[in-house]
């Protein structure tokens, strides 16, 4: 019975079944399945999706839909873990992500956010057109390990520099690693604004995030 439900949890992820994700998670909790095992089934399945994406067997829509399944199912399981007085698996790190002010492009930023989530990071997505002060406030409030900023226009890339300067002014630059990305960005630009890392692609962004936090 328990293994049946664990398989069902795995299946909702692998079959991208967003509609039934929450219901299956609730069913697992009601059936008394170990919430830690249930969480492991979900995260194991999303890793499988991530691996297939990396190999070119799955594509972006598969990855994003699988992540949506997890976003529906995992809160139910995590509540059960808390109720049991247990501790959920620790995330690899906390990331605040957003597209900078003046820029409304969301796809690339969303892809990085999804891949970070799938890789096991806790992700706080501030969305698009995020003002510098909003980035700074979110960092003070959430104390993340990483700040990831996206800019898709040459005209808005400079805003990434403004945020880094803001971090310095507030005296919190050393509290957080800064990653930048977007089509007009390159390593030279990242170095020039004092960012810690640059990812040319979304999967590379995840690699850089892990590297900066010393995760192999």
């Amino acid at each position: 019975m328990s293994s049946d439900i664990l398989n069902q949890l795995k299946d909702v992820v692998l079959e991208f079944d967003i509609e039934n994700a929450e219901a299956v998670a609730k069913k697992a909790v009601e059936a008394g399945v170990s919430p830690l095992k249930a969480a492991a089934a979900l995260t194991g399945a999303i890793r499988e999706v991530g691996d297939k994406f990396g190999k070119g067997e799955f594509f972006l829509p598969d990855l994003v839909c699988a992540a949506e399944v997890l976003k529906k199912a995992l809160p139910v399981i995590n509540s059960a873990i808390e109720k049991n007085g247990e501790k959920a698996n620790k995330s690899l790190g906390k990331v605040i992500i957003g597209t900078v002010y003046g820029d409304v492009h969301s796809i690339g930023k969303g892809m990085v956010a999804t891949l970070l989530y799938v890789a096991g990071f806790e992700v706080i997505d501030l969305g698009i057109n995020v003002k510098g002060e909003d980035f700074l406030n979110a960092i003070k409030e959430n104390n993340p390990d990483i700040l990831a900023m996206s800019a898709l226009l040459t005209t808005t890339a400079a805003e990434q520099k403004n945020v880094v300067e803001g971090l310095k002014k507030e005296g919190i630059r050393d509290n957080v690693k800064v990653i930048v990305g977007g089509s007009p960005i390159n390593q030279e630009f990242a170095d020039s604004i004092g960012a810690d890392g640059y990812g040319a692609t979304a999967p590379e962004g995840v690699k850089i995030a892990k590297k900066l936090l010393g995760i192999s």
């Binding site: 991208f16 967003i18 972006l60 829509p61 598969d62 994003v64 839909c65 992540a67 949506e68 969301s106 796809i107 969303g110």
Partner: peptide, 9 residues
């Protein structure tokens, strides 16, 4: 976003 919809996938 339409990226996360079943229709796209």
């Amino acid at each position: 976003t339409f990226l996360s919809t079943k229709q796209t996938r």
